[in-house]
Simulated scan of single mutants.
Amino acid sequence: MTTLTDHLIVDGARVAYREGGSGEPVVFIHGTPSHSYEWREVVPHVEAAGHRTLTYDLLGYGLSERPAHRDTSVAAQSDLLGQLLDALGLDRVSLVAHDIGGAVALRFALAYPGRVRRLMVMDSVSYDSWPSATWRRIIDEDLDDHAAMPQEAFDDLLTRQLTMTVADKSLMTGDVLRAYLAPHASRLGRASFFEHQVRHYDSRYTEEITDRLGGLTLPVRILWGAEDEWQPVRYAERLRDDIPGAELVVIPGAGHFLMEDAPGRVVREVIDFLASGGEEDTEGSPGPAR
């Protein structure tokens, strides 16, 4: 299990992170409602395979600072990623990104193509795919009144949502469920969840880059859970078709948090992708699903 061990001030805000291993650097970007805990079964194996890893909590998430009145949209998180890499002396990296982290990574790769060696996106928000129907209802009903929500009601709401992230519902119970709920186990945590996460569930951040996806020339692998209840596979197929040379891998029996449903398969796909070539693999037609 990986635990964030260090903190760094980036653009005036504190970011919690962890570096490990040695070799070619790869950055893991988590999604929502989540934090870097989701990579605990993946990162150690990637390090063992000979890679330097960087895992961090997005601003407003997990152990990172939750500053009031700070933009924590995927656009702002993409800018912050560049500053974090600068602060750590990382010029060119591979990115492995999940959910909204996928949007952060796609925006970063489009803005700074020379800084990204390879890009893997997992069950990423894209196009007009988000917020999902259940999140849209929460935005409509609870976003402006969240301060009055008791902790028990909040836990029930988030538990219902987290249960939707896995195909095997028994996986989102016990210690695992508690770990996903833990960052929000306070009044500040609840407020931060709505203000730093839910308030920025906005598809304009992905729709505004749709016409630019064809300009990506780096190796891209799209990893998707076949039973994702929030991001249907048709969005993965659309990404594959719009990104030149992109390969789509659909994992049966996995949901939106595919690293919970199928951690071993995710590890194998990540290590295999990172072992593939760099620029020499950037040409070619879109790869088939497999």
Rank of each mutant, 00 (worst) to 15 (best):
Thr2Lys: 03
Asp6Asn: 11
Ile9Asn: 04
Gly20Arg: 07
Glu24Ser: 08
Pro25Asp: 12
Phe28Lys: 09
Phe28Leu: 14
Phe28Pro: 12
His30Lys: 04
Glu38Ala: 04
Arg40Lys: 03
His51Leu: 03
His51Asn: 06
Thr53Glu: 11
Tyr56Gln: 01
Gly62Pro: 01
Gly62Leu: 10
Ser64Phe: 00
Pro67Glu: 02
Thr72Arg: 07
Ser78Tyr: 03
Leu80His: 02
Asp86Ile: 10
Gly89Ser: 09
Leu90Arg: 10
Arg92Phe: 13
Ser94Trp: 08
Ala97His: 01
Val104Arg: 00
Phe108Thr: 07
Leu110Gly: 08
Gly114Glu: 14
Arg117Cys: 04
Met122Ser: 08
Thr134Glu: 13
Trp135Thr: 06
Arg136Cys: 01
Arg136Asp: 08
Arg137Val: 09
Glu141Pro: 03
Asp156Glu: 06
Thr159Pro: 00
Gln161Lys: 09
Asp168Cys: 10
Thr173Met: 10
Gly174Tyr: 01
Val176Met: 09
Ala179Gln: 12
Leu181Pro: 04
Leu181Phe: 02
Ala191Ser: 15
Ser192Met: 02
Phe193Trp: 07
His200Asn: 15
Gly214Asn: 11
Thr217Trp: 02
Arg221Pro: 00
Glu229Lys: 14
Glu229Thr: 14
Trp230Leu: 15
Trp230Ile: 15
Arg234Gly: 13
Gly245Leu: 13
Ala246Ser: 05
Gly253Ala: 06
Pro263Asp: 07
Val267Thr: 14
Phe273Thr: 08
Leu274His: 08
Ala275Arg: 09
Ala275Lys: 06
Thr282Ala: 14
Gly284Met: 11
Ser285Leu: 14
Gly287Val: 13
Pro288Val: 08
